[in-house]
Structure formats: structure tokens, C-alpha cells
Amino acid sequence: MKRTAPSDAARQRGFTLLEMLIAIAILAVIAVLSWRGLDSIIRARATITNSMEDERVVAQLFDQMRIDARQAATDDEAGQPAVSIDNGSLQIVRGMFAVGAPPRLQVVRYRLSDGRIVRFASPPLANVGEVRRALSSSDTADGWNAVQLMGGVASLASRVYIPQKGWTTRMNDVFSQINENDNNLKVPQLGNAPLPRAVSGIQVAVGARNLAVPITRVFMVGE
């Protein structure tokens, strides 16, 4: 029996409706999976970017604190404790050294205000009298500048290290150490030796709403 060739209509038969529905369903699943994967990548990238920005801000804050602590004046130069702490604040009397200009002093204060750590800095000060006036003045006095260093902060805690005595949050301990150092200098065999620093270290702990525990750093004073 002679075979007949398939007709053009049979050779050109397209997809059935069921096959089209199955293909569309497969494409929909692939699209959903692809979108979820892309969304996860975008979210992860945003998280990494935010984390890197947070780390940069924290590093900038602590770097500035380290510089201020390293350039802290002596208690003699400040006419009172060069490093002072209070609830949510840190104050340092530091030296300013510029090329072609005589050395000056400056009062800097780190305060927690409305969830932000702000660094207030006085204008350059030429003598102890000007330092005392700056210490008793407000952060908003003429010549002071303020720089916001970090936001989203829940707490700012500081304590100081007194040689041979350890860490303390009490300024009375600092004043007692200054008096002790001053009395020791009156012993004849010590002559005109400089007054030792009452505070040799500062510990700062910054707590943020997105941190399980505060970030803590220790800075040497005058080193």
C-alpha cells in the first residue's frame, strides 16, 4: 500500500492550549524565583552599604576623640582637671598647634543631644584665664562651633583612669588625685618637677538602638 505524505496543515500544527498554559506557568515560576533572588541581592547590598557607612561614622567619631585625648593639656596648663566627665558628656582641654602660630588651648565637649553625639569646640585660648572663662561658658557662646559626629545614639558613657587607683566615674576622685599630686610636689627632694597627670586614660562607650551592646574604646591621655 502506498504511503501518502503528511499534509502541510499537519506539518505546521502549533502548540495546544494546554502546552501554552504549562509554558506560561513555568515562566511565571522562573520570574518569581528570579525576582526573589534579585530582591535578596539588592537588600543584602543595601545592608552592607549601610553597615559600611555606620562603621565609617563610628571610626570618625573615635578617631576625633583619640586625637583630642592625645593632645590633652596638663592639669597645670588647664588650671583644673584637663579631662572631665559627666552624665552623657566628655570634656577635654587640649592643645592647638598650628604652623607659624603660637600654641593655644581649646576646650572641646562631646555631648549626647537628641540622639546625636555633638562635638563642641571653643575658639583658640591664649591663657588660663581664657580657659576658665571658656569652661564656665555655654556651648552656644560666640566663637564656639558644633559638629554632629554620630546619630541614632541611645547612650554615651565615659570613665577615666587614675594611675595606681584604676577606673572611676567620679570627678571627686580626679580632684583628690590632683591635690595629692600637688602635695607630693611640695616634698623638697622632688624640686620643680612637673605636676603628673591625674587622668591617664579615658574609656568611652557608645550605645545605639541597633546594637546589642555598646561600642567601647579606650584612649590614652597626652600620649
Results as ranks from 00 to 15, higher is better:
Ala208Tyr: 00
Asp63Glu: 15
Arg119Tyr: 05
Pro103Arg: 14
Phe15Cys: 05
Leu149Val: 03
Thr49Ser: 10
Ala141His: 08
Ile22Gln: 12
Arg94His: 14
Gly166Glu: 02
Asp63Gly: 04
Arg197His: 06
Val58His: 08
Gly201Asn: 06
Ala28Tyr: 04
Leu125Cys: 11
Ala46Leu: 11
Arg116Ile: 01
Ala198Arg: 05
Ile48His: 11
Arg13Thr: 12
Thr169Met: 08
Met150Ala: 10
Gln80Lys: 05
Tyr110Trp: 11
Ser84Gly: 02
Val187Met: 10
Gly143Asn: 08
Asn145Tyr: 02
Ala198Met: 06
Arg94Lys: 10
Thr216Pro: 04
Ile92Val: 11
Ile85Leu: 11
Leu112Asp: 11
Leu33Pro: 00
Asp75Trp: 02
Asp182Phe: 03
Glu130Leu: 05
Ala126Gly: 01
Pro6Val: 05
Trp167Met: 06
Ser51Val: 01
Leu149Ala: 07
Ser136Cys: 00
Val213Trp: 08
Asp173Ser: 07
Leu33Asn: 10
Asn145Lys: 14
Arg11Ser: 02
Leu27Ser: 12
Arg43Phe: 11
Phe219Ala: 12
Arg94Met: 07
Met96Asp: 06
Arg3Val: 09
Gln148Ala: 14
Pro196Leu: 10
Thr216Leu: 06
Asn50Asp: 11
Val107Gln: 06
Pro6Gln: 06
Ala98Trp: 10
Phe219Trp: 04
Leu18Cys: 00
Gly191Val: 08
Asn179Lys: 12
Gly207Met: 03
Arg104Pro: 01
Asp63Asn: 14
Phe120Ala: 13
Ser137Arg: 11
Pro163Lys: 12
Ile26His: 03
Leu211Glu: 06
Tyr161Thr: 01
Phe15Leu: 15
Val199Leu: 05
Gln203Asp: 04
Thr4Glu: 12
Arg132Pro: 00
Glu19Gly: 12
Ala146Gly: 03
Trp35Ile: 07
Arg111Ala: 14
Ala82Pro: 12
Ser136Leu: 13
Gln64Gly: 03
Ala141Phe: 01
Thr216Lys: 14
Val99Ile: 13
Asp54Ile: 00
Arg11Ala: 09
Ser155Lys: 11
Gly151Val: 05
Asn192Cys: 00
Thr216Ser: 08
Ala23Gln: 10
Asp39Asn: 15
Ile215Val: 14
Leu105Ala: 08
Pro102Ser: 14
Ser34Glu: 03
Pro188Ser: 02
Asp54Met: 04
Phe62Val: 04
Asp8Thr: 11
Ile215Thr: 13
Ser84Phe: 01
Arg3Cys: 01
Arg66Glu: 12
Arg119Ala: 07
Arg56Met: 11
Val174Thr: 07
Leu190Gly: 00
Ala23Asn: 06
Ala72Arg: 04
Gly129Arg: 09
Leu105Gln: 08
Val58Phe: 01
Gly191Ile: 06
Arg133Tyr: 02
Trp35Val: 09
Ala59Tyr: 02
Asn183Glu: 13
Ser84Thr: 14
Met171Glu: 06
Asp76Glu: 10
Leu27Tyr: 03
